[in-house]
C-alpha cells in the first residue's frame, strides 16, 4: 500500500512486475507440462477403456476391486474373472468377453433376500424405544438392539441406504421390499446389515426361509413380532423331496444347489416361517399322449413319484401327487410334458 501511495503515478510499474513474474511462471510451467505430456505420453491399453465403458460404472465393489476402473485394469493385466461384475450381469460379461476374446460362460443371476419377516412398525416387538442415530448399525450396539429378537431385523433401513441401484423400497408399514428387476446382487445391502439377514440367492428360486432366529420353540415365538419364526422343528427337512434343507442351531437353511423350488416345505412349516412367492401359482404336469415315447425318464426324475407307466408305454401323471416342480418338463427329451 505504501509503495502505491508514494508512486501513485505509475500503478502499472507496481503491479506490472508481479503480474509478469507470476504470469510468466504459470506460462512456462504450462508449456513445460504441455510438452511433457506429449514427450512422456504412456499409451494405455485401449481394451481397459473399452471395458470401463462396458461396465455399469456404479463402483459398487461387488467384484472385489476398488472400482470399475480397477476391475477393468485387473481383467486386462491380471487376467481377473470376467464374470465378477454382478450389476453388469451377463450383458456386460458378454461385451467384456468380446473385447478380451474369451468365452463368457454361464453366469448365475442372483438377487438379495431378507431372511426375516419382522422389522416393520406394527410387526416388531420392542425391548425399549430407541431414539439414537437413525441406523441399524448404531441401534444394535445398545443392549443388543431395540427389538426383542436379537437375530431379527431392527428396521432402520441400513440396507436401503446401502443400495446404490434403488432396488430396496420401504412401504408404509416400514417393511423393506427388494425389487427383483433392479437388484443386481452386488451384496452392498448384505454387508450393511449388522444382523446379516440378507443373502444372495439364485433369482429363479422362490422359496425362502424368512427367519434367522436361533432361539428354541417357546422363546422364538415370544420374541418374533410376526410370530412366524423358524423353531428348528425339522418338518420341512423331512418333507423336502431332495433333502435340500438342513437344521443347524434351531434354524432351517435351504441348500439352493439342491432345491427344486417345489414349495412343499412352505406348506409343511407349522409356523409359516417359509415364504413361497409362487404358492398356489404352480401348474401341474400333463403328458401329451401323442408325443410320449415311454422312455421313463420323467418317472425316474419325479421327486414325489407322481408319474407312472411301463417302458415304451404312455405315462400318466397323478395330479394329486404332482407338486408342480417342473423337473420332468426340463428333462423330457420329446418335450411331451405341458403345464396346465
Amino acid at each position: 500500500m505504501i509503495v502505491i501511495l508514494q508512486s501513485s503515478a505509475s500503478l502499472m510499474s507496481v503491479i506490472g512486475a508481479p503480474m509478469l513474474i507470476i504470469g510468466g511462471l504459470g506460462l512456462i510451467f504450462g508449456l513445460i507440462l504441455a510438452i511433457a505430456s506429449k514427450v512422456f505420453e504412456v499409451k494405455l491399453d485401449p481394451r481397459v477403456e473399452q471395458i470401463i465403458a462396458a461396465l455399469p460404472g456404479a463402483n459398487c465393489g461387488a467384484c472385489g476391486k476398488a472400482g470399475c476402473a480397477g476391475y477393468a485394469d485387473a481383467i486386462v493385466h491380471e487376467g481377473a474373472d470376467i464374470l465378477a461384475c454382478a450389476p453388469g450381469g451377463p450383458g456386460a460379461a458378454a461385451i467384456i468377453a468380446r473385447i478380451m476374446g474369451k468365452e463368457a460362460g454361464a453366469m448365475d443371476k442372483k438377487i438379495a433376500v431378507i431372511h426375516c419377516s419382522s422389522g416393520g412398525h406394527n410387526n416388531t416387538k420392542w425391548k425399549y424405544a430407541y431414539q439414537g442415530i437413525d441406523s441399524c448399525k448404531a441401534a444394535v450396539n445398545i443392549a443388543d438392539g431395540p427389538n426383542l429378537c436379537t437375530w431379527g431385523c431392527v428396521g432402520f433401513n441400513d440396507c436401503e441406504k446401502a443400495c446404490v441401484f434403488d432396488a430396496i423400497k420401504v412401504d408404509e408399514q416400514g417393511m423393506r421390499h427388494i425389487d427383483p428387476d433392479k437388484c443386481t446382487a452386488c451384496g452392498a445391502c448384505a454387508t450393511a446389515c449388522p444382523r446379516k439377514l440378507i443373502m444372495l440367492i439364485p433369482h429363479d428360486q422362490h422359496v425362502h426361509i424368512l427367519c434367522s432366529s436361533k432361539a428354541k420353540n417357546p422363546l422364538a415365538k415370544q420374541l418374533c413380532g410376526t410370530e412366524k419364526p423358524c423353531i428348528g422343528c425339522g418338518l420341512c427337512g423331512r418333507k423336502c423331496p431332495v433333502q435340500a434343507i438342513t437344521i443347524e442351531n434351531n434354524l432351517a437353511r435351504i441348500d439352493y444347489s439342491k432345491c427344486i423350488d417345489c414349495g412343499l416345505c412352505a406348506t409343511a412349516c407349522p409356523t409359516k416361517a417359509i415364504g413361497d412367492i409362487k404358492a398356489g401359482k404352480r401348474k401341474k404336469a400333463e403328458i401329451v399322449a401323442e408325443k410320449c415315447i415311454g422312455c421313463t425318464i420323467c418317472a425316474k426324475i419325479c421327486p414325489t413319484k407322481a408319474i407312472s407307466g411301463e417302458l415304451k408305454q404312455l405315462h400318466t401323471v397323478n395330479k394329486d401327487a404332482c407338486i408342480g416342480c417342473e423337473q420332468c418338463v426340463a428333462k423330457c427329451p420329446k418335450k411331451a410334458i405341458d403345464l396346465v
Binding site: 512486475a17 508481479p18 513474474i21 507470476i22 511462471l25 504459470g26 510451467f29 504450462g30 513445460i32 507440462l33 511433457a36 505430456s37 514427450v39 512422456f40 505420453e41 504412456v42
Partner: peptide, 30 residues
C-alpha cells in the same frame, strides 16, 4: 531480486503443483 517476497505462497503452490505433475509424467514413462 524483484522484491516480491509477499507472493511466495502463490508462487510456491504454482511451482510445486507443476513440479509434481511433471515428475509424475516422467516416472510414469521411465
Amino acid at each position: 531480486p524483484n522484491g516480491l517476497m509477499y507472493l511466495q505462497t502463490i508462487a510456491f503452490i504454482l511451482t510445486i503443483a507443476a513440479l509434481v505433475q511433471f515428475v509424475e509424467m516422467v516416472i510414469q514413462k521411465n
